[in-house]
Design a protein around this nucleic acid. Structure first.
Lengths: 233, 233
DNA sequence: TGAATAGTGTCTATTAGACATTATAAG
DNA sequence: CTTATAATGTCTAATAGACACTATTCA
């Protein structure tokens, strides 16, 4: 590699470079609760799927690759959370990790996926390294995005009833939501399909689709979120 | 360095590592407008202050060091924005950059600081590399944080009038705010000092301090922000 | 006194939240 | 019919936004 030199005299070979990893917190809703996808290794215990970044690879592509090869998940839209850069965070040496977050419907994950429940941003089982903090950031990010749009990550299908949508939001925000207020908050973000769901004992519920390009009202965050997750820990 | 090997067989020396830089978007309000602090280099033109990360240094410490040495600014609380990792983004080779954002009062910057006006997240003059995108992220981050608390970055002093505070917010959000509604939005986040400002022709204005540990109401974001900055570009 | 600015009261339209009512299905 | 669930209407309290009014200074 030629030694390009910029105005301040730095070159790309002046000093050691960090190893760069990515880790991905894949959230999902199963049994009406938030879960995070983990992988188990004999040496490090439970951890988020991750990998080292390959030469000239983007971190997002590395995260995609980690999900594909270690968790059997593809075609996921991810969001940068933070870089974890404590030089002592990895026993192997100077390893930084870019954390990504996303959410995927349960039925897009392998049937034997290892899911750990998440309560108020905290995994029910302890994770390796600083991965619990990554989960906390992922949940805060998920909640912020879900207060902005109707189920942007398609945790439920393309067509759904308001009840199904509300139960999804109750799982994400971890508390009950009033059914009439919830309906009014989201109704502007829904398109009616005309169809109804097969009734479960009572009046059949109407099936809706996400309305493209609509945001939920600013008040939605206040309605959904009972409290804020402390992401500073 | 010993070759620690983890369960999946990776080592820390398997493949090349990226050079890692940091760049900092320091926003300030001058002449009732948002500005961003830039440095000028003969080779690259206008750019955000930045530096390469030193061995075993945290990115935040590197960002501190860049601000101190290249812009004469110290003791600034910064926020991670995003990692910029396009492998072709730097002509010198594979260089990623972690972007940080912050805001600093004009009088904490050197008198000869190079400030570029910012309109709707866009610097008035073109910046090197992808630094304009970093500015966009910094402005979005600033607005989100200022909708949460009263001037958390101390862009105005410890004691201030509601008028001064409102003019600050009008500069940050780039539109006029109704004086009575604004006052009601922020009043719960203020403590009265009893003192009044030296009058400027009319009734003297009361001086307030930030009330510790209070958040602005959730509706504040809707009142302040006329529209959202597109950070996807 | 009038001019200028700070601060507050009032009215209206909107709406979150609670509750009641109607609508539509199955048995 | 009864029962169950969906969807909507109604009432109240809170409040954003607009506007007017009062308060306090200086000239």
């Amino acid at each position: 590699m030629s030694e390009w030199r910029n105005a301040s005299g730095n070159t790309l070979r002046d000093y050691p470079r960090p190893s760069l990893a990515v880790d991905v917190a894949v959230l999902t809703v199963a049994e009406a609760r938030l879960h995070v996808l983990v992988v188990e290794s004999p040496h490090d215990g439970l951890a988020l799927p991750g990998t080292f970044v390959h030469p000239n690879e983007r971190t997002r592509d590395a995260a995609d690759r980690a999900l594909r090869t270690k968790a059997g998940v593809s075609d996921v839209e991810m969001h940068q959370l933070a870089i974890f850069d404590d030089p002592t965070r990895d026993y192997r040496g100077w390893v930084m990790s870019m954390a990504y977050g996303t959410a995927v419907a349960r039925d897009r994950l392998p049937g034997n996926a290892f899911l750990v429940g998440v309560t108020d941003g905290e995994p029910d089982e302890s994770l390796a390294w600083d991965h619990a903090r990554m989960v906390r950031l992922a949940v805060a990010d998920l909640r912020a995005r879900y207060a902005d749009e109707v189920d942007p990550d398609y945790l439920i299908g393309h067509e759904f009833t308001v009840l199904e949508l509300r139960q999804l939001y109750e799982a994400i925000y971890e508390h009950a939501l009033p059914k009439d207020t919830f309906r009014r908050q989201v109704s502007d973000g829904l398109d009616s399909t005309g169809k109804v769901s097969s009734a479960a004992g009572g009046r059949p519920a109407e099936l809706f689709r996400r309305r493209a390009g609509t945001y939920l009202p600013r008040s939605a965050a206040g309605v959904f979120e009972a409290h804020r997750i402390d992401v500073t820990r």
